[in-house]
Write a protein that binds this DNA or RNA. Structure first.
Lengths: 116, 116
DNA sequence: TCAACACCTGAACAGGTCTTCAGATGAAGT
DNA sequence: ACTTCATCTGAAGACCTGTTCAGGTGTTGA
């Protein structure tokens, strides 16, 4: 039973270390929400559409292929999670990606998906 | 109206380019599902727990603080999306992160969240 | 073979998500 | 002031997700 006991001790140590590796709940929640926002095909399309140039709501709707209302709803959540930012010019509102991280996340995500 | 027409043409060109920047639907679906799997606090905790060492289901349940059944269900979806892989040893099953990308994604995600 | 253990699975329920619809807001031009 | 245009918003409904519960598989050691 010596080996089994030893293994148990090792496991307990690893489990303890693993527990400490988990961040605080605020970070976890923010991280989860960020990925959740990226975890939707419509919003991903919007991200790709905005990758090169800023676009207004109507154009996004046309490119992505859904109603302007749906786009507006999605942009609001993307704005809240700081995936996109916007710029107003008269009655138009131009949206663009918020920062580089979004681009990085998507690029790495693609690398993961395209492997194998 | 000259300027307005010009702007419209510019916008149409940008919109057209934006449409081409959107990947095929298989890539989009895979990408979306990958992010969706990461978009859950429980699964993120599991990722952090597995970041250093492989762990068995019971230990993960203890560290994360949910039932073994819930862990098992989550691990299955994480396995399907290649977030984790496993190794059997007798009646134990040890789980670990599948590849480096997962670690990268989480690290960049944290950087995004912790900014501002 | 039997019991104990580690893990897996299907069904079901609560809670959340995404789109649509109808209408509201606000800016620009007449 | 009125109309048009671009965008936003709340409510509602269909759909999806994550956990629990109860029971299943398969391995180990007596």
């Amino acid at each position: 039973m010596e080996q089994s006991t030893m293994t148990t001790v090792l496991r307990r140590e690893r489990a303890e270390a693993a527990g400490k590796a988990i961040p605080d709940s605020d970070t976890l929640r923010g991280l989860g929400e960020t990925f959740k926002v990226l975890g939707d095909v419509t919003r991903l399309k919007i991200c790709f559409a905005l990758a090169r140039h800023e676009l207004c709501v109507g154009d996004i709707a046309g490119v992505v292929g859904i109603s302007e209302s749906a786009v507006s709803h999605q942009l609001r959540t993307m704005k809240t999670m700081r995936l996109v930012k916007y710029r107003r010019e008269g009655k138009m509102t131009y949206y663009m990606l918020d920062d580089v991280h979004i681009d990085d996340l998507i690029r790495i995500g693609i690398r993961h998906v395209s492997e194998r």
